[in-house]
Amino acid sequence: MSLPRSNYDPRRVCVNPFPNVSLDKHKRSIGVYLAGALFAFACWTFWDAAILSRHARPPSDEPAYGVPVHVTFVDWVPGICSVLGFIIVNLIDKDRVRGDDAFSGDGGAVWRARLFLFIGFAFMAGGLAGSIALHVLKYYLHEYPEQFLYYGYANMSQNVCFMLSAVVLWLAQSSSSEYEYNLTL
């Protein structure tokens, strides 16, 4: 084993320890607000594409054929997966993932928390992969004009912003604060 025996804990899953971020009160608030701004920007970009799709006009060179593509329910599915992953990740107790919960003698609770964390990030990664695949298959391969490619770009940027928002919120909430009190008996 490459770790010194003093740092070795047989209950650990990963060799690298979970990062312990300590932010002061204002940086923590900034992280929460930044995560909210990223989430709002993600929603705004996709809603903008959906509204533009609803009110789209055909290209000026082919007005007889109509609008070639619209935002449909299939375009909403990656965002829904990412939001579910976002919710799952941020509902997990951070101390359970670390295994620091003093009141829980159940080793299975740590395992379940890590499993749910994995499932949440898998939902978000699936949403991002789905939005990339959707952009390539629905918008890019058909060589639509640039105004219609925006729908796919908006979908991808929505999912990237959801993932970044989840990570920023996770780091902001998992940091130790001077206003938290740890009571131990």
Results as ranks from 00 to 15, higher is better:
residue 175 S to M: 03
residue 64 A to N: 14
residue 153 Y to V: 03
residue 179 Y to D: 15
residue 54 R to K: 12
residue 102 A to H: 12
residue 95 D to E: 13
residue 171 L to P: 02
residue 31 G to W: 01
residue 48 D to P: 02
residue 166 A to H: 01
residue 115 L to M: 13
residue 176 S to R: 12
residue 21 V to A: 10
residue 25 K to N: 13
residue 89 V to Q: 00
residue 57 R to M: 15
residue 37 A to N: 07
residue 51 I to F: 09
residue 58 P to K: 01
residue 149 L to G: 05
residue 171 L to N: 06
residue 148 F to I: 05
residue 19 P to S: 04
residue 15 V to I: 13
residue 15 V to Q: 14
residue 165 S to W: 05
residue 185 L to H: 12
residue 90 N to L: 15
residue 88 I to T: 06
residue 146 E to A: 14
residue 33 Y to Q: 10
residue 176 S to W: 08
residue 146 E to F: 08
residue 60 S to E: 15
residue 3 L to Q: 12
residue 181 Y to C: 11
residue 102 A to R: 12
residue 38 L to Y: 02
residue 4 P to W: 08
residue 11 R to E: 14
residue 38 L to P: 01
residue 121 F to Q: 01
residue 79 G to S: 11
residue 72 T to I: 06
residue 134 L to N: 12
residue 135 H to N: 14
residue 92 I to R: 00
residue 45 T to F: 09
residue 184 T to W: 10
residue 122 A to F: 08
residue 5 R to A: 15
residue 163 M to Y: 03
residue 112 R to M: 13
residue 36 G to C: 06
residue 61 D to M: 06
residue 39 F to A: 15
residue 178 E to I: 11
residue 42 A to W: 02
residue 134 L to H: 07
residue 51 I to G: 07
residue 71 V to D: 07
residue 81 C to T: 05
residue 184 T to S: 14
residue 165 S to I: 01
residue 9 D to E: 09
residue 76 W to H: 11
residue 6 S to V: 08
residue 157 S to E: 15
residue 164 L to N: 05
residue 146 E to C: 05
residue 118 F to W: 11
residue 83 V to S: 07
residue 73 F to Q: 10
residue 139 Y to P: 08
residue 71 V to N: 07
residue 159 N to A: 04
residue 112 R to H: 09
residue 95 D to S: 11
residue 101 D to H: 07
residue 28 R to G: 05
residue 146 E to Y: 06
residue 1 M to V: 07
residue 127 G to N: 11
residue 34 L to A: 13
residue 86 F to T: 02
residue 20 N to Y: 07
residue 17 P to A: 08
residue 126 G to I: 06
residue 96 R to S: 13
residue 78 P to R: 00
residue 134 L to G: 13
residue 184 T to Y: 11
residue 100 D to I: 06
residue 43 C to I: 11
residue 14 C to E: 14
residue 185 L to A: 14
residue 4 P to V: 08
residue 144 Y to K: 04
residue 39 F to C: 11
residue 120 G to C: 02
residue 142 H to T: 11
residue 130 G to Q: 05
residue 122 A to P: 07
residue 114 R to D: 02
residue 107 G to E: 15
residue 75 D to H: 02
residue 111 W to N: 13
residue 157 S to L: 15
residue 116 F to V: 01
residue 35 A to C: 01
residue 174 S to Y: 06
residue 109 A to R: 15
residue 42 A to C: 08
residue 141 L to H: 10
residue 110 V to F: 05
residue 183 L to V: 09
residue 116 F to G: 00
residue 117 L to C: 07
residue 176 S to A: 12
residue 173 Q to M: 14
residue 169 L to P: 01
residue 150 Y to N: 09
residue 45 T to K: 11
residue 101 D to W: 03
residue 97 V to I: 12
residue 72 T to G: 07
residue 103 F to M: 09
residue 46 F to R: 01
residue 111 W to P: 02
residue 1 M to S: 12
residue 162 F to R: 05
residue 102 A to K: 12
residue 11 R to V: 04
residue 168 V to Q: 03
residue 177 S to P: 00
residue 94 K to V: 07
residue 175 S to F: 04
residue 125 A to I: 09
residue 176 S to T: 10
residue 85 G to F: 00
residue 92 I to H: 00
residue 117 L to A: 12
residue 143 E to C: 10
residue 128 L to S: 04
residue 180 E to I: 04
residue 126 G to C: 10
residue 155 N to L: 13
residue 55 H to W: 11
residue 85 G to P: 00
